[in-house]
Design a protein around this nucleic acid. Sequence first.
DNA 1: GAGTTTGAAACT
DNA 2: CAGTTTCAAACTC
Length: 725
Amino acid sequence: MDVVSPELNSLLPDEIMDTEAIEDVPHSAAQSEASLDMVVPMETEVPMPSENVSVSTDSTLSVSPGSQPSSLVSTSSPLLTIKPALATSMATTKTTDSVTGTTVSPSGLQKPTTQFAISPANHQIILNKVASSQATEAAKSVGTPPQIIKQEGQKLLVTAIGKSGQPIVLQLPHTGSKPGVSQTSGDTKLQTPQFKVLTIGGRSELKPMVVSPGNQVTTLQAQQLKTVQIPKKTPASSAAPIKFIITKTVNSKGLSPQTPVTPVIQGRVLTQTSPVMTSKTITLSEPHSSSIQTIPGKKIAISPLKTPSKNIKPVQSVPVAGVGGSQFKTIIPLAAQPNVQQIQVPGSRFHYVRLVTATTASSTGQPSVSNTSSVQTGKPVVVSTGAVRMSVPVVPAQTVKQVAPKPLTSATQVVTTTQTQQRLIMPATPLPQIQSGFTNLPTVGYTVVPAQYVTQIQQSPFVTLASSSSFPPSGAVQSQAKLPLNGVSAAETTSRPRKPCNCTKSQCLKLYCDCFANGEFCNNCNCNNCFNNLEHETERLKAIKTCLDRNPEAFKPKIGKGKEGESDRRHSKGCNCKRSGCLKNYCECYEAKIMCSSICKCIGCKNFEESPERKTLMHLADAAEVRVQQQTAAKTKLSSQISDLLMRTTPVISSGGGRLPYTFVTKEVLEATCECLLEQAKKAEQTRQPQADAERVILEEFGHCLMSIISSAGKAKVDCASINC
DNA sequence: GAGTTTGAAACT
DNA sequence: CAGTTTCAAACTC
């Protein structure tokens, strides 16, 4: 029996994942071994490089929320028992629980390096297994991963766990805890009396791993246990309050030298929706939709299946209930070479991309629609080597749009989108959790990829995003995506046309670089020695982390809403201008076309509402802009008319077999033409027609004149030819 | 296009 | 946190 304590659910951070329904349970083949030094900023989930707990695709998840879905309450220090099916395989891998630094050693062979975070707010538990020593070192460098415990929502997030074919069981024993294993934050105090026991897989094979969160074991024991079993291949009822998000963990090639064969790791997030919490939708759809079933046994069994291929959900969109409301996540696994799963957080500027290196993955996605939202899974993501897992900071999304599930012939995936377009990977909010998560992140396998880049990545044949999905395949990887997304042009998707940077010394890895600061990859830039690309993923991630360490809001938009709403946009930090009077583009406020505010520390500011200089400047700017627009429109219209005329006269000209006699454009003809045009202008002026109309009339007259000239010339030429002149 | 100015970012 | 340096964009010529 595999049991996961309900506390874990409660402990899971809201931001990380919120799911309401479990649809698909992929097999997880997890391997621990992360070699990469990549740090992913802003991940709520701590990726487990080596191993992830995955719900096997084959297996159906049966969740018995019991009568009380909300009953899943995280206890402060739940006992967590993880049982890897094959303990022997675990030897090379280290498992770490994100929970307050508790470490789990599977089969006792490995160091306890696992860390898992528990967010009491959502009752979520994130289990991250850090297999590789490298990962642990990275974690060390980052610092001890914080435990996140939130009691509000009841969510269980389980990521990364054992190798494929080796189920990992999370168990919450009533009694027993390893001393000193876990830390409990003060948040853990808030514990709900009830437990949920999740059993995954339910293989007899499984060897128990015990993770004891530590301090408050006794309390947990006292609490009620609910066990939910997820039988393999059993359909899950949507009604089940518990949601599972399964994320596929990745095995990186080089990551684990020790284990040459890297199983695909699938991770899933299990979230239980509490009545209190705003619901978030999680869509994990297996090809054959698995339904969540409540099992009287009150056990949830999550069994990673050995068969890796079946239901890996390429895309996961998870609405997450956050403080501000529901938050939405979209995880899109991107195919091709690095398997990439994209996680979109509405409002965020970054796309989280999860690079999955799965050796094998195959599944035919069947669209399944959950009541609230659904994520369709397409074909399984092909796992190549280094597995990268990205957790996404969740930004509260006001509304979530769900994409109707499509049958996926290919690796098509439906992506749910929020009203806002997908953007971000960086948390809109300061997201301390992200940072913490970031620090916690195993350095391996994570990357933050700009949206455009994701689009580029999608070129890979494996994953085709549905039309609804925002990422159309693009041609060149580095080329900036300009293809329409969701029917929206790329230009529309991006708030502004990005200017190419010209960085020379920063390697485009500092905020000096606008591309980097905007969370974008350099593309078609003029920079030198650019590291802001996928080729320098590691450096880039480090740079991102550094920036976030320095300023957690470094990637937040500087221009935010003021107190009074959108009309009150203002610079988040204020400017510090001294010499520009805040009336040049040096000033970030002026550049953003907003007034300086009280938080600005500028000297000699002239960028305020009543400023005459500003008014003059703005007036001039507006006038110039209007002028430019008019000129552009006039040019366009004139050129179109000319081309139209040429098209019409072409037969005449061609019939003549030669060029028209330019001598026809004599001084007299020009004067006559000008008079015609002036006459039209006078008429327009007398009738007080609008400028646009006047221009149109004049241009039309000009066209008529041209027609007459060309026609006359053509006739003359024909006549001349007929008389051999 | 080269050089200067400017202020944010980075550094100490 | 303040002062200084670095950096790249904005600007001028």
